[in-house]
């Protein structure tokens, strides 16, 4: 049972982690609490659905299609909205409110285009792989493989590539951007592309694992993703990865009977927030955040 839960936790956690990267970088770079991120994820999932079910493409092609479309949308949103707001020196609250507006617009567009009914990808739901005591569906296995590869790729990109390092540095310390003569707009655009790609990926994988999904599922994912960002320390990219994984695993393991009988499964979503609150009380700046200095 323990290993099964651990595996489930890794599946959920890797989805959180991939989505949290984008949220964390955007916050670090733009001071944007992106409320539209969940709906961006849902958008990716639905474009993948369009490719997979409507056009009959295999998931191997549908997933990149969903990611690419989400990245394009993220790029357009920066050019059409976020850049003009930056030019006007819009404050934290203005950005936050605008992102609620974007979230509303996105979700209603998805509802208008695809309707409220639950959808599912064209994958075999009954195919199960058994490894020891652990039973994993095809969707879970695919998610584990793709997500692991993606997390490694993102981590390498952030650690090794110049662009990735600049992104991390800027997210960590904004004053740096002004001093170092970096082409800020270019880095921001690339960050939006990365945020879009990862949101599309995380959205599609989350939809795949859930089995069925509706246009509201993105928003339901948003809160745990935010929790993951905070757990890792806002603005820290690696922290977001670690926070996402930790949160997913903690949430699933909380129902384990070996853990003082475990929590009732109905309370699983609460556990994520409980973990977050406890973690913050112990370490107020998040797992990877830096302490505030006056």
């Amino acid at each position: 049972m323990f290993w099964q839960l651990l595996a489930n936790g890794f599946v959920t956690g890797s989805v959180y982690a991939i989505a949290a990267i984008g949220v964390s970088l955007l916050y670090g770079l733009l001071r944007l609490v992106n409320f539209a991120h969940g709906d961006l994820m849902a958008f990716g999932a639905f474009v993948s659905y369009l490719a997979n079910v409507t056009f009959g493409l295999p998931m191997v092609l549908s997933l990149p299609a969903g990611m690419a479309a989400t990245a394009a949308l993220a790029l357009v949103s920066d050019l059409a909205l976020w850049r003009p707001l930056r030019l006007r020196r819009a404050g934290f609250m203005s950005l936050f409110l605008a992102s609620i507006g974007v979230a509303l617009v996105l979700r209603q567009m998805i509802l208008l285009l695809w309707g409220p009914q639950p959808r599912a990808y064209d994958v075999d739901p009954f195919k199960v792989y058994v490894i020891g005591d652990v039973r994993l569906s095809l969707a879970q296995v695919a998610t584990i493989l793709v997500a692991s590869a993606a997390i490694v790729a993102i981590a390498l990109f952030l650690a090794r590539s110049t662009t990735g390092r600049v992104m991390r540095a800027m997210a960590d310390d904004q004053a740096l951007a002004q001093l170092s003569g970096i082409d800020v707009n270019r880095v921001i655009l690339l960050t939006w592309v990365l945020a879009g790609l990862t949101a599309g990926l995380a959205g599609t994988l989350a939809a795949l694992v859930q089995g069925s999904f509706d246009p509201n599922f993105g928003f339901q994912l948003l809160l745990p993703v935010f929790a993951a960002v905070v757990l890792g320390g806002i603005g820290s990219a690696y922290g977001a990865l670690a926070g996402g994984l930790a949160l997913g695993v903690a949430t699933e393991l909380s129902t384990w009977e070996g853990l003082a009988g475990g929590v009732e499964p109905a309370y699983k979503p609460v556990v994520a927030f409980g973990v977050l609150i406890v973690a913050l009380l112990v370490r107020p700046q998040g797992l990877f955040g830096r302490a505030r200095i006056v």
């Binding site: 006007r88 605008a98 609620i100 974007v102 617009v105």
Partner: peptide
């Protein structure tokens, strides 16, 4: 959707 657009417009 219109409310969302109005909010964005107001912020701008």
């Amino acid at each position: 959707l219109v409310i969302g657009l109005l909010i964005i417009g107001l912020v701008l």
